[in-house]
């Protein structure tokens, strides 16, 4: 029953459609293309022409000013630029190098103290010269050239610490 009903509706639609006739097209292709071009050209406005005109005007004005300007006058001006002076390094006592104190050790008046001592007591207050001190005798080849890795270790080249004779430590 329902199939019959559907078929009838489709037939009616077919008949209605078949009664229609195509209407002629209202769109002019060439006209459409002309209008599109015209619309795009109109969108630019006058910014670029006006800008170009302004720059041209400025160039003309500046060119004229350049030609007509008076000769430049040279003015010398001394400018002082503050420069950070290298600071005197903080005083480090010579005694520190001998390992007598750490970095926090207070300054010692080495030279001034020595001078005062010499002036008060005479030159005998000067320390005994280095040349009077006996150098430490090397105990081994490593002592002669510390830091060098010797190819072999021989007891011949090592001083016996107890006897002072060559022959290695015992």
């Amino acid at each position: 029953m329902s199939d019959q009903y559907d078929d009838r509706e489709m037939i009616d639609l077919e008949n209605a459609l078949s009664s229609l006739s195509p209407a002629p097209s209202g769109i002019d292709r060439d006209g459409l293309m002309f209008q599109a071009g015209q619309s795009s050209a109109r969108r630019r406005g006058r910014i670029w022409p006006l800008g170009a005109a302004a720059l041209a005007g400025a160039a003309i004005v500046l060119g004229a000013a350049l030609v007509a300007r008076p000769a430049p006058t040279v003015t010398e001006r001394v400018v002082y630029v503050p420069i950070e002076r290298p600071r005197t390094p903080p005083y480090v006592s010579a005694a520190r190098g001998a390992g007598t104190g750490g970095p926090e050790q207070a300054p010692v008046m080495d030279y001034f103290a020595l001078r005062a001592k010499v002036l008060a007591e005479g030159l005998d207050a000067l320390p005994e010269p280095q040349t009077s001190r006996r150098p430490r005798e090397p105990e081994s080849l490593e002592d002669l050239a510390p830091g060098i890795r010797w190819p072999y270790r021989s007891s011949i080249f090592q001083r016996n610490r107890s006897t002072g004779q060559p022959g290695g430590t015992t």
């Binding site: 005197t88 005083y91 480090v92 006592s93 010579a94 300054p107 010692v108 008046m109 080495d110 030279y111 001034f112 103290a113 020595l114 030159l123 000067l126 320390p127 005994e128 010269p129 280095q130 040349t131 009077s132």
Partner: peptide, 17 residues
Amino acid sequence: LSVGPALDLPSITDQRK
């Protein structure tokens, strides 16, 4: 001389000798 009190007189005693 720029080290002030740390002035070292490295060989003065040796020169005296």
